[in-house]
Nucleic acid binder design. Sequence first.
DNA 1: AAGAGTTTCAACCGCCTGCCT
DNA 2: GAGGCAGGCGGTTGAAACTCT
Length: 217
Amino acid sequence: MGRSPCCEKAHTNKGAWTKEEDERLVAYIKVHGEGCWRSLPKAAGLLRCGKSCRLRWINYLRPDLKRGNFTEEEDELIIKLHSLLGNKWSLIAGRLQGRTDNEIKNYWNTHIRRKLLSRGIDPTTHRPLHGQADASFVKEVEKVVSFMRREDENKSSNSSSNSRSNSEEPKRWRCPDLNLELCISPPLQKQEDSEEDMMREEYGLLLYKRVAGIQMR
DNA sequence: AAGAGTTTCAACCGCCTGCCT
DNA sequence: GAGGCAGGCGGTTGAAACTCT
């Protein structure tokens, strides 16, 4: 049994958006704001699925999008965030102002993968392909991964005995091995990550700062 | 000039999650 | 607690653009 489609496929346009459709969508959102994507197409006079409208707005029409080529700094930031977060494109995008998850995903697959391969680094594992290169960074990442694993284990054993730590302030991850006297910047866009995602993200950033020696605010 | 091959990226699909009733 | 719905996500597709021969 398949689920019901998100909209009436028979009366919706598909494929590339026309200029007129873009204008209608932008005009509608300017007046009414984002939200309720399902009812938006009808209200805006668009023969599109709500999801399609959302995607078009987020990936292409939003006024705060940067567009244009990625800088060398962005490249390196993406690589390092990916080594910590994996294919969590939305989390990675949340750290790059004006970039979308789709854009970063595409850029990763078309440019960065190749770049890493040419450096002799496996783009999936971030480990050297032929037993060399960037060993110190790999070590740092391994440290974090094993720390996260330990935390996961602790958490699951605690939760079974404690049945959740109630509504107190969420526990923050701290790695005892690393001296990280750094401030943490909030995610640029997303607000609704799960607690665990936020902690991973936060910790990943700290590690990134330490390894890359980059100042971010 | 033109056809074949390759690359890029916007858009779609289906699944997952969280919220509401 | 169950079920439905909407939004969000990552993987995939395919048309257009570009490069090579």
